[in-house]
Design a protein around this nucleic acid. Structure first.
Lengths: 148, 148
DNA sequence: ACTGTATAGTTCAAATTTGAACGACTTGTA
DNA sequence: TACAAGTCGTTCAAATTTGAACTATACAGT
């Protein structure tokens, strides 16, 4: 249980630092930044809303809100899906891509300083492996809210 | 950076499962549960508001809100601090302690299932050590918001 | 084709969280 | 003692997040 407590605390603290850096450097929330990152990594720089919500681990309504925000900022655009009239694609705009390029270095620097650089190669590898095991288990598990 | 992504995703997912279990079993938020845990571990089952906020990594105003909530539920009480007229002590009530005893097993079960049991002893130890290094670094660092 | 069920995304009200502003009390210094 | 600066907790408005309800579309079975 000590591991869980340490995990929890470290995460909360790191989240704060990350949030602060992003807000100062780009006026972005961490949640918004994560959306941009996911889109930029996706083929065609676009993703269906539902898929995007699943990847960033947020509720569908929460995603609607943030994509709306990013749309206002001009960093993301909405497209209706050709193959499914119900669907909406969130697309990273050129401006969004540029914003990400501008912002990423500072973000990476914070994460390096407060996490990566503190750990040796073994620790980092072990941690990554552990986290992926957890993710796999939970993706299978019955009840990740905002769905069933 | 893969480590950070994995960390982030695993945490979000785990948080959801934990939140769901606590809500279903005890009608508590994870944030509220954390407060109860911190208080129960403190000498005299009481802590100053500021100290409690620092430990659960939440803003002072956020803590004021949640302690108010817990007070309404009868799980926590407020006492004025004898040595400092400004200070307020949050105290775990008998009912709060009982609630915690009732709830903890289910919480621990979820964390075991989705984290502890997936990892071997080495992984768990390494992870805990890594998290503590991170915590130590960030506690020192200049800007954990809600303070300066 | 037709009906019933499931899915996609949004809207809505409610709960939570934060930072800034505030009033109360403490402390160090003259 | 009086003052300036700092700390404590709360209050306030604003931003975010969630789940439920809703509308529109897709799809399977008949």
């Amino acid at each position: 249980m000590a591991a869980w407590t340490a995990y929890l605390t470290a995460f909360h603290l790191l989240e704060r630092h990350v949030e602060e850096q992003l807000k100062a450097d780009a006026g972005l929330t961490h949640a918004q930044y994560e959306i941009l990152v996911m889109l930029s990594a996706a083929p065609g720089r676009r993703l269906r809303m539902s898929e995007l919500a699943r990847r960033v681990v947020v509720s569908r309504s929460g995603l609607t809100y943030q994509v709306g925000r990013l749309e206002t900022m001009g960093l993301v655009a909405r497209e209706t899906c050709a193959s499914d009239e119900r669907g909406v694609l969130a697309v990273l705009t050129a401006e969004g891509a540029a914003c990400l390029e501008r912002t990423a270095p500072g973000h990476v620097a914070v994460v390096r300083e407060l996490m990566i650089d503190l750990l040796d190669r073994d620790e980092l590898e072990t941690m990554t492996r552990a986290m992926r095991k957890m993710e796999a288990a939970m993706r299978r598990s019955p009840a990740p809210p905002a769905d069933g």
